[in-house]
């Protein structure tokens, strides 16, 4: 068990190291000098040089890489080139939008997907199953940002139940915050729920075909009892993986939805930073997102270990 844990931990750290190198190199090859970009086209060469040295851009690449990593590890993400403010603070502010949004959407998606997936598997081959399959097929095919536009058209413009966009922050109370995140969360959750529901259904159906389910039936368990006591837990492993992947996708992949609803989230931050050549922000936010994905994968791996006794044994 300890061996398994440390192997995962090592993979986790290694992935982070590799990812940081890739991100750093990608940003390095991006054309456009941030210093001249910041000062505009009329800037004098010596002022540009001065700014470059102030920003540390004249340092060798290897030094800058380790400065960046060192800063990240101590929570100092550097100073934004464009806004001249602390990146850590900027990211922190945006995280207060993106993180609740991701959690909200993931919550919705799980709450919809797990029961429908179980229902479809229990009714496999029957009308109820067919209805769920058809609905999920449609759900996967709908682009979330289009769904978002339609939601705005109906609920914000026509019915005026929600505002069409923007986010006033959490200071106006929890309820207001949640309300302004509701439409984006629904838009994000729909396709995710459709995928998750299909995964739940097929994992459960596969498990229900296992021999030990027949053994359980031979003991006198009814077919629905076998779902709850035997199949569900075993089918949850692939579902867990997908939930993990979806969380990291929701954190980073909300860029377009944030664009639709004018939400000041991480996605919009990185999008604007890219167009403004604010490389330090791009680097930091992308690294943060990659860190989140790798961390979630790591947690999912460890959860496997807790679910599956075969992984708890060291001697295999």
């Amino acid at each position: 068990m300890i061996k398994y844990f440390f192997r995962r931990l090592f993979t986790f750290v290694l992935s982070l190291a590799l990812a940081s190198i890739v991100i750093f190199s990608l940003v390095e090859i991006a054309p456009g000098d941030p210093a001249s970009f910041m000062l505009g086209i009329n800037a004098q060469p010596d002022t540009i040089a001065a700014l470059r040295s102030e920003l540390g851009l004249d340092q060798p690449k290897i030094n800058r890489y380790f400065d960046w990593i060192g800063g990240m590890l101590t929570g100092d993400f550097g100073i934004s080139y464009t806004y001249r403010t602390n990146v850590t603070e900027m990211v922190g502010d945006r995280l207060w939008v993106s993180l609740p949004l991701a959690i909200y959407a993931l919550f919705l998606s799980t709450v919809i997907a797990i029961p429908t997936g179980i229902y479809a598997a229990a009714k496999r081959g029957k009308t109820g199953d067919f209805a769920v399959i058809s609905a999920t097929q449609l759900g996967i095919a709908i682009p979330n940002f289009w769904f978002a536009i339609i939601l705005v058209g109906i609920f914000a413009i026509k019915l005026q139940w929600f505002s069409a966009g923007g986010f006033s922050g959490w200071k106006d109370g929890l309820f207001n915050g949640i309300t302004s995140l509701t439409l984006p969360a629904i838009a994000l959750a729909l396709p995710q729920a459709a995928i998750l529901s299909r995964v739940m259904r097929s994992a459960l159906i596969e498990t229900l075909g296992e021999d030990y389910i027949r053994t359980a039936r031979a003991k006198g368990l009814s077919s629905s009892q076998t779902i709850w006591t035997h199949a569900l837990r075993n089918a949850l492993i692939p579902v867990l993986t997908i939930i993990g992947l979806q969380f990291s996708f929701l954190l980073a992949g909300a860029i377009i939805i944030e664009q639709v609803f004018y939400l000041p989230g991480l996605g919009r931050l990185v999008f604007q930073a890219i167009t403004q050549r604010d490389l330090i922000v791009v680097e930091s936010v992308v690294m943060l997102l990659v860190f989140a994905v790798i961390l979630v994968n790591f947690i999912v791996d460890i959860t496997y270990m807790l679910v599956d006794p075969r992984l708890r044994q060291d001697s295999i």
């Binding site: 030990y212 359980a216 075993n234 679910v307």
Partner: peptide, 21 residues
């Protein structure tokens, strides 16, 4: 109510007949 109590069954494949978890 009969299965497991009055009539029970043993299967061919012991490797897969038990729940691994």
């Amino acid at each position: 109510k009969l299965r497991g109590k009055k009539i029970s069954m043993v299967f061919q494949e012991p490797m897969t007949a038990l729940n691994p978890l």
